[in-house]
Design a protein around this nucleic acid. Structure first.
Lengths: 229, 229
DNA sequence: ACTTGTGAACAAATTCACAGCC
DNA sequence: GGCTGTGAATTTGTTCACAAGT
């Protein structure tokens, strides 16, 4: 709906809500409350309500939010109801596992082909999708009007692959490499930040230790638990 | 150093700074300025300075920050200077690609073994690391005092694998599955949020379209470019 | 009781403005 | 001129407090 006014922190929480809502729906529940969701995710119920409000769903007091409608709206806000075709560049182990990952279906994402420089990988098919030679990339993307590229090449090869995707007319790149990609304006990049995630985990582990010490001294424990989001 | 007072948004940017600093160091540069980093990452230079300040590095006017020291301190804050052993559970395609991923070395992470329920995967070795049967998990973890588990099993198997890791005395779990894991307090979980990342990318793509329309009407373009972080 | 929904208060994060230095 | 460093202002995000509905 007015999906552009959902701010990023909220957007990033929506998939979590969706998982719970879907699970509750499968168990036949018709209404779900913000506090139920909050409890399971260790979040503040008000935050959950505010987030759900941005999806346009309206709950009824004493009962909660209607599960079916909420799920539909979450999926719409997440962009899961629109099907988008993507090509994947770099059909190594990581690339292959993404090509096989059937869950992308629910996210509205379908990978229609993989590309690789290595001739030994070219010609095989992974999960029914062909792995093609890099020569075919531009024509394939252009002919099919593909808008999204998934990048799972080595970091050294990342920029060149990007340039070719951009030249072929791609609009967005989902970057699984640690490289910072240089792209011209209208192309959007979203990177999976492994290093950042790991850094946060290291910090949580440290905080845990610190927390347990203050704990022994009769300190607070809630703030530590909250880390575990 | 006083790594506990680094807040999360800053921490998540540190790997980006590190990549640039390392690159500049390899090119023989001795000083790097916050504005140079900011330009490359499309960030605000003040933010870069404030972030770098939390690492304890102090720059000198007109020259910038000393590259070698800055890099060392970044690595220390990121936890890359401490070596941590991990086990990986779920040696499928994704698991295998993580076991082979040599870049984890720099992050202070070393995966010493993989575990899998599938007997066809057990016994092989990936990147010189053994893939063992799940029966051996607890004893392996306990004997070696392993603190970190990497979870790359199917979402259905995630909770059970988690319970076994926790029972074996693991302290943190790096969760590559979409499952929300239930763990007892002192265990910390950090999840790679594919769905959230993809949702953000969908939104960027929409925003791009909207941005280009307002652009045509003589609007602003900077805020859109900023998305591309 | 238990819920939604919301304005106000609060906290966190970012950006601005400018002083000081080379 | 270009740079660091920092308090203040601003923006953004979260939580509180409470009215209202069932």
């Amino acid at each position: 709906m007015r999906a552009e006014c959902i701010h990023e922190p909220t957007l990033r929480r929506l998939p979590l809500y969706h998982a719970i809502v879907a699970q509750e729906q499968e168990q036949g529940r018709e209404f779900v409350s913000s506090s139920l969701i909050a409890r399971q995710l260790e979040l503040n119920p008000v935050q959950v309500r505010k987030d759900l409000e941005t999806t346009g769903t309206t709950g009824t007091p004493r009962r909660g939010f209607p599960v079916a409608e909420l799920r539909r709206r979450l999926e719409s806000c997440l962009g899961w109801s629109v099907r988008t075709e993507a090509v994947l560049v770099g059909a190594g182990h990581l690339g292959a596992s993404l090509m096989q990952y059937d869950r992308f279906d629910r996210f509205g994402l379908s990978i229609s082909a993989g590309f690789d420089v290595d001739p030994r990988r070219v010609g095989v098919s992974i999960a029914g999708k062909p792995v093609l030679a890099m020569d075919c990339l531009e024509s394939y993307v252009r002919e099919r009007g593909i808008v999204l590229g998934i990048l799972t090449v080595s970091p050294e090869a990342a920029q060149e692959a990007t340039d070719r995707l951009v030249a072929a007319g791609i609009r967005g790149i989902w970057n699984f490499t640690p490289a910072k990609l240089r792209v011209a304006f209208p192309v959007m990049v979203e990177r999976i930040e492994l290093a950042a995630s790991l850094a946060v985990l290291w910090k949580k582990l440290q905080a845990r230790k610190a927390g347990m010490e203050t704990d022994r001294l009769g300190g607070i424990e809630e703030q530590i638990v909250q880390f575990n989001r």
